[in-house]
């Protein structure tokens, strides 16, 4: 998809998560391309603060009308904050996928080796 927005300052997973790195805390969301493919998002199943997550395992679940997608954790760690506003306005991901972050994780290990930069992600689309 040539029309998707891919900000330069983020890292991307091939499974269409974006990652903002801020020391040992990372912020995770889904990309503009992903929200477009899913269509109207109606619900986000958020993790709980304090929950331990594993790299490559499910972090959250995004529900559209007739499809559902797992959001995978890009590193091991612990959820330190969730975007609770999504509980009432899951559709904000459709409006702005990069403002509508899902969770912040304090990482306890390396980031997934599969993460790529904006140019690398554009090449995947």
């Amino acid at each position: 998809m040539s029309g998707s927005i891919v900000p330069e300052d983020l890292k991307y997973a091939p499974s269409h998560e974006w990652v903002r790195i801020d020391g040992d805390v990372i912020t995770v969301g889904i990309t503009d391309h992903a929200q477009h493919e899913l269509g109207d998002i109606v619900f986000v199943e958020l993790p709980e603060v304090g929950q331990k997550v594993e790299q490559g395992k499910g972090l959250a679940v995004i529900e559209a009308v007739k499809t559902v997608a797992d959001v995978y954790a890009p590193a091991d760690g612990e959820v330190v904050e969730v975007n609770a506003a999504l509980a009432d306005s899951a559709g904000s991901i459709n409006a702005d996928a990069y403002a509508s972050w899902i969770a912040k994780i304090k990482i306890s290990g390396p980031l997934s080796a599969e993460l790529v930069d904006a140019a690398g992600y554009k090449a995947l689309l």
Partner: peptide, 9 residues
């Protein structure tokens, strides 16, 4: 056309 997005929201 029935609005199934509204139904789900």
């Amino acid at each position: 056309r029935v609005d199934d997005v509204k139904a789900a929201k």
